[in-house]
Write a protein that binds this DNA or RNA. Sequence first.
DNA 1: GAAAGCCTTTACCATTTGGTAAAAAGCAAT
DNA 2: ATTGCTTTTTACCAAATGGTAAAGGCTTTC
Lengths: 189, 189
Amino acid sequence: MEELVNYILQFGNLNRQQIDFITGKAKTLELHKDEYFSEAGKIPRSVGFILEGVVRFCYYNNKGEEITHSFVDENNFVSDQQRFEAQVVASEYIQAVTDCKLLVFSKKDWDEIGNTIVGWDAITGLILKNCLLKTIERRSPLVSEDATTRYLSFIEQFPGLVNRIPLSYVASYLGMTQQSLSRIRKNVR
Amino acid sequence: MEELVNYILQFGNLNRQQIDFITGKAKTLELHKDEYFSEAGKIPRSVGFILEGVVRFCYYNNKGEEITHSFVDENNFVSDQQRFEAQVVASEYIQAVTDCKLLVFSKKDWDEIGNTIVGWDAITGLILKNCLLKTIERRSPLVSEDATTRYLSFIEQFPGLVNRIPLSYVASYLGMTQQSLSRIRKNVR
DNA sequence: GAAAGCCTTTACCATTTGGTAAAAAGCAAT
DNA sequence: ATTGCTTTTTACCAAATGGTAAAGGCTTTC
């Protein structure tokens, strides 16, 4: 819970009472590897904050290939935020790629926090902007790099992650086949 | 000017007086092809709204290659927003790729609008989130697609743009060489 | 209209990456 | 330990892309 509070306080000031109000709404949720936090075709039910584990955002392209477009690890918010706010069905999946422990907020509780705490919308707005920028900064360079460079920058950006999750997910995130990734890993060693 | 107002009103309600206050601060700026709107190493001086023309965001990687990471065309805001807000030096360039006509707001005027109009920060926050999401949606799929598919989706996402700007910029946006793009264009025809 | 400069296309070959298939390695359940 | 299942690695060949260089086109300028 402390991690969540520290995270939020980076983006704005809150007093003890406000913090307690927020943390009072958080429920813990455990997800097993491969379970979904949010699914395409369903309305996202909650906003999460990852205490332990890693999740990925993924979707299927028109060839039926599964594309991982981002990973989120410990001490970060995870949510299909636009769809959650609007309460409309999602078009992508958020899936646990390791066992996870999360703090979650229901839509009702999330709205109550917004209606109670002045400045909460500004804080969450900043958090979302931050997450989006991070996603862009991580993903955008992948377009112009060759496969080996993409793999090396993945290792830098997500230290240790490559040892915790299936390589097929890494390959799909990096836009290459599993076989190419395997070959690259051999050459890099 | 009407385009600007319509754009803003998508993200929140403003009365006549507020709208006049905002538009009163806007100055027009003309940029010739290749001129910079914002430069790496300099502090971004203004927020722009494109009335005519197209700009691109670009930077140089560690091999000295120039990478175009996004295009912005008519009726969109253009700004190195994070750096502008914080008034710190930029790490990338924003360059006109055609002659452009813009409405611009200085930092001082932008802040005055924020201090005067209740809800302005919320509106600009939404606008920025929107731009970031659009960037992600456009750029992210490029990682996992082959060169021909990337070119075809570029044509869809920026109709006509390919005829207005140098193909070398398109190639760098799509993460391929100019020669590859040329070959692909021949095969697609 | 000739010259100069830039942008675009072509061509050739080397290298990288993808597709398919099979083998090897790791893991879990019995 | 054996079996069955999934993940990862290899191998082979085809296809796509990059690098270098040169030629062709298109403007601009004088």
